[in-house]
């Protein structure tokens, strides 16, 4: 996918190969400008690929205009028709398909029930709240029973509380309709909560595809590990099945690692402060009490700052103050070796 002309040509998407399963909740995750929306627009038909092909249940989509694709979009801006009522908005697609009136009325009623907007059919979009507009946009797209529903940052305009509600609502609609959802977001938490599978994108390429658990537990690069959740990185050298840290301590390798420089990724909640000072020696820089957790910010010689998150279970409170020397314990299964 190449954009622009002459020296301004930009390759927006590169070497993307994805297969999305029937009835899957698939999320494209990445920072703004990574190409996730472009990919969505390619599926919808608003953009045409300069190379490559997109197939829907075996049928190639290239050259088909958006109005000939059995795919519907929930736009980031909702793009509800301001001159039409809620019911007319929902009926729009079916009317364009030339469905009989009785059937349209039936589907509109069904959709209003599905998105819990019964009684709002005669309102104009301007008379609805953001959350309600979002529901109308969903109903308008779902009314056509598309083979794939595309959602473009559809929740990002909502406030936090409403967003959480709509996340659950979307999961429910996905389960009830049995339609394949392709969801675009830059919110990693949203992606983890809702998706069956996630594709993490980076500068027009796919960095990693996998279930939320796979992406979180086994990131394949520093980029993915950093983008999804919080991660500590340690520099180390692999030699003869052992990971050597610059301060002289060593860890067993969790998987076979060829010799050389590596980066270790460790989630903050999987590292522990040792009770007896054993393990990697570190110094406490700061202690942040967060209610359910306490976060210990550690300094390790020759390393980036390291965070340890520990749950405040009864009796688990450790009396550690800034400046104290502590031992850092890294269970082998908590360490992910990234080739770099």
């Amino acid at each position: 996918m190449v954009y622009g002309e002459g020296s301004e040509r930009v390759r927006a998407l590169d070497r993307i190969s994805l297969e999305i399963g029937h009835n899957e909740f698939f999320t494209l995750l990445g920072p703004s400008g990574c190409g996730k929306t472009t990919l969505l627009r390619l599926i919808a038909g608003f953009e045409q690929p300069t190379e490559g092909s997109i197939r829907l249940y075996g049928q190639p989509l290239e050259g088909l205009p958006p109005y000939r694709r059995p795919v519907n979009t929930v736009f980031q801006s909702y793009a509800l028709f301001p001159h039409l009522s809620v019911a007319q908005n929902i009926a729009f697609g079916l009317e364009m398909l030339g469905k009989p009136r009785a059937e349209i009325a039936q589907v509109v009623r069904e959709m209003l029930g599905l998105v819990k907007l019964v009684g709002y059919e005669n309102r104009r979009p301007a008379q609805l709240s953001g959350g309600q507009q979002q529901r109308v946009a969903l109903a308008r797209a779902l009314a056509n029973r598309p083979k794939v529903l595309l959602l473009d940052e559809s929740l990002s305009a909502l406030d936090l509380k409403l967003r959480k509600e709509m996340q659950l609502e979307l999961k429910r609609l996905h389960a009830e309709t049995g339609i394949t959802f392709v969801f675009v977001t830059h919110d990693q938490e949203e992606a983890l909560t809702m998706s069956d599978r996630i594709a993490v994108m980076q500068e027009g390429r796919i960095a990693q595809v996998g279930t939320p658990t796979e992406i979180y537990d086994a990131p394949n690069s520093r980029y993915v590990a950093d983008f999804i959740g919080e991660t500590n990185f340690l520099k180390a050298r692999a030699r003869g099945g052992v990971l050597l840290l610059p301060d002289g301590s060593s860890l067993p390798t969790p998987v076979h690692t060829p010799d050389g420089e590596v980066t270790l990724a460790i989630r903050p909640e999987r590292a522990r402060l040792s009770a007896d000072g054993s393990g990697i020696s570190a110094r406490v820089k700061d202690v942040v009490y967060k209610g359910t957790d306490t976060i210990y910010l550690l300094e390790l010689p020759g390393q980036e700052p390291f965070q340890v998150r520990s749950q405040n279970r009864l009796g688990a409170l450790q009396l550690v103050r800034p400046g104290d020397p502590v031992g850092l314990e890294l269970p082998p299964e908590a360490v992910r070796v990234l080739k770099e």
Binding site: Y67, N72, T73, S77, L80, F92, L97, R140, A141
Partner: peptide
């Protein structure tokens, strides 16, 4: 005019004339 509405119309099976 918000041209995104035109995209929405295309998405909802309206051809150019419709």
């Amino acid at each position: 005019l918000d041209w995104r509405l035109l995209e929405a119309a295309f998405d909802l099976y309206a051809n150019r004339w419709k």
